[in-house]
Nucleic acid binder design. Structure first.
Lengths: 206, 206
DNA sequence: TAGATTGTTAATCGATTAACAATC
DNA sequence: TAGATTGTTAATCGATTAACAATC
C-alpha cells in the first residue's frame, strides 16, 4: 500500500511538521500545497509528491486539512509516542541537551552518564557513573542513547550501549559508528555544519 | 578553471577532512581513493569524482598525498583563516557552544549576547546585553553570528545582526530566516535530526 | 456548474556509479 | 616494464519539476 519513501523526503518531514504545526497554532484549518511550498521555499509539486508518497491526505479542489495533516505527520514520525532517552557524556553539549525543552513531550531525558559525575547536578535527571550503564538499561526501558562524548570515547561507548541492548543512537561525536545492522544511528555534527558555512564564506572571498 | 561544485559534494567536504586529518595524525603519507571510500562508506568512484571537481590533487598510479590533500581541503573550506564569532542567546545551547573547543583554532567565540546577562560567567568570553550588539559589531570584526535564541526571537535577532553588518549566520533556532541575498545562512536543527531518527525507529515498529 | 487543487504520470534535471584510457 | 591508480567520460540511478486528468 505504502509507496517507497526516499531519504530526501524523510529529511523534509520535520520541516513539513514545523510548518503545519505553525499553521495549526494559528488556527488555520486548511492549506494548499502551494501555500506550504511558499512557506518552505520548495515547489508545490514537490509538496504534493511528498505527501502522496505516504498515501495522500488531501482533497482535490480543496487542499489539505491542517489538523489531519499534522496528526498524520506525527504518526509517520512517531512523535506521539514516548521516547526514553539517556545521554552518555556530560560535557557542554550533553548538559545542554539534558536541559533542552524544545524536542516536544515525546522525548524525555531520563539519565546522564559520564566517567566523572561529581558536582554535576541536573535537576530531576539522574546523573550516573558510566559503569552503571548496563545495569540501568536492564532495569529501565531506554529507547534512545545520545552519545555526546569526545570522539576518542565514542566507539567504546557505542559498543557499550549496543551491548546494553539499546537499539537507537543519536550521535553527536564527530566519528562514524560501527554498529550491528539492527541498530539505528542518526548522526548530527556541529563541526560539519560550521565547516559548510565556512566553505560558502570562503568561496565568496576567493 | 574550477568546475562547478554541487551541494552534495560540499556537504561531504567536512567528512573528507575528518578522515584525511585522521590519516595525517596517524602518520600516513599517501592514500588511495579506495582506502578513503572504505573509511567513509562511499564508492571510490565518488571520492575521485569529488576531488576531481576541485582540480584533482592525486597522482595516477600512486594515489593522493595526505598532507597535500589535508591542506587543500583546509584551503577550500577556509579552515586556516580566523573566524570571529558571536553568539546570540545564552541558553543551554548558546552556553554549550561558547564553551565548546572542538571546532579548531580558526573559530573563536568572542562574545555572547542575551536579554539577561546577570549571573552568566563564561571565562574569557564577554557576556553582553543584546542592546549593545550593534555597537559591538561596529568596534569589532564579527565574521559569524550564531543564533541560539528561542524560535520566537530568532527573526528579530537575525534582522538585528544583519543590520549590524554581519554577513554570515549559523542558525540553531528552528525557523527559516529571511535575510538579504548577500548574507549566508547555515541552518542546523537538532529537532530535525532527532525526528528523522524517530521516523526510522517508528517505521521499524510499524 | 465552474474554479480550484489534488494525485500521479511523464519529462527533466542532477548525482552516483561504472568503465577505461592516461600515466605515474 | 608491469601494476596501480587517477582523471574523466558515459551510463545509470534517483530526485525534482511540469503537466494534466480526476474530482471535490
Amino acid at each position: 500500500m505504502e509507496k517507497t519513501v526516499s531519504p530526501a523526503i524523510i529529511k523534509r518531514l520535520p520541516r513539513y511538521y514545523r510548518v503545519v504545526t505553525h499553521l495549526f497554532n494559528e488556527g488555520q484549518t486548511k492549506v494548499s500545497s502551494k501555500a506550504i511550498a511558499e512557506l518552505m521555499d520548495v515547489t508545490a509539486s514537490q509538496v504534493r509528491q511528498d505527501f502522496c508518497s505516504f498515501g495522500g491526505y488531501g482533497q482535490q479542489g480543496y487542499g489539505y486539512d491542517v489538523k489531519k495533516l499534522k496528526s498524520e505527520l506525527e504518526n509517520i514520525m512517531g512523535l506521539n509516542k514516548m521516547h526514553n532517552m539517556i545521554i552518555i557524556g556530560a560535557g557542554n553539549i550533553g548538559r545542554a541537551l539534558a536541559g533542552y525543552k524544545g524536542f516536544g513531550d515525546g522525548f524525555k531525558v531520563r539519565a546522564v552518564f559520564d566517567v566523572v559525575t561529581d558536582g554535576i547536578e541536573l535537576g530531576e535527571i539522574e546523573v550516573l557513573n558510566i559503569s552503571r550503564l548496563k545495569e540501568y538499561c536492564a532495569e529501565n526501558k531506554v529507547d534512545i542513547a545520545v552519545i555526546s562524548t569526545p570522539r576518542s570515547a565514542a566507539a567504546k561507548v557505542a559498543a557499550d550501549v549496543v551491548d546494553a541492548g539499546v537499539k537507537n543512537i543519536w550521535n553527536f561525536a564527530p566519528t562514524e559508528l560501527d554498529v550491528p545492522g539492527d541498530v539505528i544511528v542518526e548522526n548530527i555534527s556541529m563541526s560539519e555544519s560550521l565547516y559548510v558555512l565556512s566553505y560558502y564564506m570562503n568561496r565568496q572571498e576567493g
